[in-house]
């Protein structure tokens, strides 16, 4: 397989004129550039092998011409906000989490980045107050050194204090250093997904360790950023309860939960269509072993349990 991060960059004709395109091409000067008419000519090709592409992903730079903000799925926590939207600025991710729904959502493992960031920002300004997930079908902070998407949003929010929506950047990355010099906007939350070390090692391939994520969180809180912790999804594999209780101990040993925006805990769930596609193409050895059942068009754990309560108790949030 190719050794460099993106051996090839496919650039959509319409994306050529954007400064970000040139910036990225300059940063990836060893990659070969191929011009394409439309990004779907490459991304939606028939018969692609997700696993092979994941080992040698290509970058596709494109322009999104509509639907900058999409209404969020009911499967996702909107944290009490009635209007929940997400922005798909990128499709696919650097990381290789075995449970990720993206494996069942896209037929390609190549990474698409939309370079018309300003259009997304204009759309966000036009919307009424909403909760908007910026890092939804990807991990924007993981790509920060290459694309600067998160910095662009931070600068935009600082320049538009009247924007009354709340934004979230969810990540597993340890790239906080790339944005730490910026002023934290009051309406942006950085959310870190946390998993036990055993889960990270075994199922969250290429992601930073728990310790690195916790270090970033601590630093971000210290610098006045709004931070949320996400223990989501909780994976029922092996001696999972012990692992997650150890995680709770580690979190409470490093971070005072009162300094955060809270903690979000969620079981694994995935739309049935994605689940079936992952199984059919044998893209994950993990989801076979999760005790999932079909309910309302999605696969999820069979019955509610009091794990969440135990976990919160362990964290010292409730008595």
């Amino acid at each position: 397989m190719q050794n460099i991060i993106f051996s090839h960059i496919y650039i959509e004709e319409a994306a050529q004129k954007f400064p970000l395109t040139n910036q990225i091409a300059t940063r990836l000067k060893n990659s070969r550039i191929i011009l394409v008419k439309h990004y779907k000519d490459v991304f939606n090709k028939p018969g692609q092998n997700f696993t092979a592409q994941k080992n040698s992903p290509k970058l596709i730079l494109a322009v999104r011409d509509s639907k900058y903000l999409t209404e969020g799925s009911q499967n996702c926590d909107s944290f009490g906000h009635s209007r929940f939207f997400y922005a798909t600025q990128m499709m696919n991710c650097l990381y290789g989490c075995e449970y990720c729904y993206l494996r069942g959502m896209y037929s390609s493992a190549n990474v698409v980045a939309f370079v018309n960031v300003e259009d997304y920002m204009d759309a966000a300004l036009r919307e009424d107050a909403m909760y908007c997930a910026l890092s939804y079908d990807s991990d924007l902070l993981a790509f920060e050194l290459l694309f600067n998407y998160v910095s662009a949003w931070i600068n935009f929010l600082n320049a538009n204090p009247s924007c009354n929506s709340l934004f979230e950047v969810r990540t597993k990355s340890a790239n906080f250093f790339a944005v730490e010099h910026l002023t934290p906007p009051k309406n942006l939350i950085l959310s870190w997904t946390l998993s036990p070390d055993e889960i990270i090692l075994r199922y969250e391939h290429k992601t930073p360790s728990l310790q690195k994520r916790l270090d970033c969180i601590k630093k971000a809180i210290g610098l006045g950023w709004r931070v949320r912790l996400c223990v989501d999804p909780v994976l029922h594999v092996g001696n999972w309860e012990d692992c997650y209780f150890k995680l709770a101990d580690k979190i409470s040993g490093h971070i005072d939960i009162k300094d955060t925006e809270g903690i979000s805990i969620g079981g694994y769930r995935i739309p049935v269509t994605f689940y079936r596609r992952i199984k059919r193409k044998n893209l994950s050895g993990l989801i076979d072993r999760l005790p999932l059942t079909e309910l309302d068009g999605q696969m999820q754990y069979a019955a509610g349990d009091d794990f969440c309560l135990h976990f919160m108790r362990r964290l010292g949030i409730i008595l």
């Binding site: 397989m1 190719q2 050794n3 051996s7 090839h8 496919y10 070969r32 191929i34 394409v36 008419k37 000519d41 490459v42 090709k45 692609q48 092998n49 092979a52 592409q53 080992n55 040698s56 290509k58």
Partner: peptide
């Protein structure tokens, strides 16, 4: 136009 998968490291010349 079709785009072959370029998954393998090689020392040949690429082009259209």
């Amino acid at each position: 136009t079709v785009y072959p998968e370029m998954l393998y490291k090689h020392e040949f010349t690429e082009g259209s």
